[in-house]
Amino acid sequence: MVLLLLKRIGFMFFTMIVVSIILFMLLETGLTGDPATRVLGNFASDAQKESWRNQHGYNQPVVVRYAKWLGNFATGNLGTSIRYKGPVKDVLLPRLWNTAILGFWTFAIMIPLSLILGVLSGMKEGSLLDRSISIFGILTTSVPEFASAVFFSALFVFGLKWLPGTSSMSGGFEFKQLILPAMVLVVYDFGYVARMTRASMAEVMQSQYVRSAILKGLPYRQVIIRHALRNALIAPFTVIMLQINWLLSGVIVVEFFFAYKGFGALLLEASLNNDIVLLEACAMVAVVVAVGSQTIADIGYTFLNPRIRFT
């Protein structure tokens, strides 16, 4: 067990290191274009570029630069943003907090919704309810986030005039502005979690112990709640943890659309403005969150599922 834990955490660090190497290669070496040109623009003179390279240590060997770069990340020194003319940390942290709020509400709505729908349709596979829920799920996952954002805005902002169309929170935090972004994320994502829950529930319903519980005459409700659910909800736990990875992609689109001042919008802004330092910091944060949540998902799964733990 301890060995398994160590192995999993070891792999987590290994992944982060490899990803950081890929990032470094893509953004910091000349592999995909000169960083000096990217930062200073196409019209900078060679002398300017040369002095920029000297000033920022770009003339050192790649390995030394990578080690320094990684060391800076590890000690929390994220560098200075070119666009915001200030420490990356000061820009990044409030943005991360905003995205965490958005993510919290998205999950708070999405998890119960998808679990209930998934359990309901998995209880009786092939029933009318099951078919309706799964087709509804296909329908909602078929609409890309930007399109559902457009549809919802047309309905709730321009049509009914219930909700604000942007979520920049310029006049302080307002819960109303959070509704549309969270709704778009929930609608796009719950179908997948519901489908996974359904599959897990359907499998449990066919197992011997559920069958014998039904055959020995337990009330159906009790069979579902006391026997089936416990096992059926192990797999969705992993799926939900892995959704954090997906959410990091989703927030980019949604925050861009609604002008929400979050982490996703910052990452996009950094890449469109060639703010390499900021982009690297954002990407590293995204990877750490993604890989971290996957590790928790794996470890949690082995804790929840004794069949894996003891083999």
Partner: peptide, 16 residues
Amino acid sequence: LSFPVLVLYIIVIATI
């Protein structure tokens, strides 16, 4: 696969 997909696309497209 451990990368958030869109982050990967943005970085790749932004660099190449």
